[in-house]
Design a protein around this nucleic acid. Sequence first.
DNA 1: GACCTGACGTACT
DNA 2: GAGTACGCCAGGT
Length: 98
Amino acid sequence: MDEVLHDRIRDAILDVPPGRVTTYGDIAALTGAPSPRMVGALLSEDGHDLPWHRVLRANGTPAPHLAHEQLTRLRAEGVLAKGQRVDLGEYRWRPSED
DNA sequence: GACCTGACGTACT
DNA sequence: GAGTACGCCAGGT
């Protein structure tokens, strides 16, 4: 994994403000990552100190094995989910609106 | 180098 | 809206 890209992905995730969410695809597009999977891979190995709970899949649902923890953290920030699905139209963060 | 795996996305049914 | 199929790229074996 390219280290510059690595840092850009981390920075992009750190930019997401509390109470908002983004998607793996958005982070990939924003940072130039070749695939959204790379974003997930990075979080998997080096995401412990990042607000990883603000990163969702494109349909607004979290990864299955993290769903409970992720939705709990998001709820604490004011992001409400309908079942397992967060309303991206409501909470999705865009860099331009920062 | 082939094959498998994964915190994903899009298209299609 | 939900499920399936396939493409995608990097890492490990």
